[in-house]
Amino acid sequence: MVDVAERLSFFAALYKVDENPEVGMWWLYITIIILSIVVYKLGFAKKLPPLKSLVIYLFLILGCTILTFFGVFLPVAEGLIVASVILIIYKIRLKQQKNEEKVDGIS
């Protein structure tokens, strides 16, 4: 017999989706939404009018519904954390490089 608890992803196990599925799935859903928004803002967001931004976020939230079901057994939230860390490092390095170029241009 297969033990479901052994196959859960980290966040699904953290939120105890196997013991309390209703609350656990909501927490997993909210986590995936927040991480998806962070990754979107860090890597892909452009300055858009408010209505277009609203449409993008609605579709992002709708897509996160599907990702949540995958996230019970697959490392979806964990992958989003890795993506956000990589994008944060990229943004920091890009900012440092621009500051260095600005300083080199002045002197």
Rank of each mutant, 00 (worst) to 15 (best):
V2Y: 11
V2L: 11
A5W: 08
A5I: 09
E6K: 15
S9C: 04
F10V: 12
F10I: 07
A12L: 08
A13P: 03
Y15M: 07
K16M: 09
V17F: 00
D18V: 04
D18P: 02
D18L: 04
E19C: 05
W26P: 05
W27Q: 14
W27M: 15
L28N: 03
L28I: 05
I30Y: 11
I30T: 12
T31P: 06
I34V: 15
I34M: 08
L35K: 05
L35F: 10
L35V: 04
S36I: 01
S36L: 03
I37D: 00
K41Y: 09
L42Q: 12
G43W: 02
G43Q: 05
A45P: 03
A45C: 02
A45I: 00
A45L: 06
K46D: 11
K47N: 13
K47R: 14
L48N: 12
L48G: 02
P49E: 11
P50S: 08
P50E: 01
L51C: 00
L51N: 02
L54K: 15
V55K: 10
I56L: 14
Y57D: 04
I61N: 03
L62T: 06
G63Q: 01
T65I: 15
T65R: 05
T65Y: 10
I66H: 03
L67N: 07
T68Q: 03
L74W: 11
P75Q: 11
V76Q: 01
E78M: 07
E78F: 06
L80Q: 06
S84P: 01
V85A: 14
I88N: 05
Y90C: 06
Y90H: 13
K91A: 15
R93F: 13
R93V: 12
Q97L: 13
Q97G: 05
K98D: 09
K98I: 04
K102G: 03
K102Q: 13
G105E: 12
G105F: 12
I106D: 06
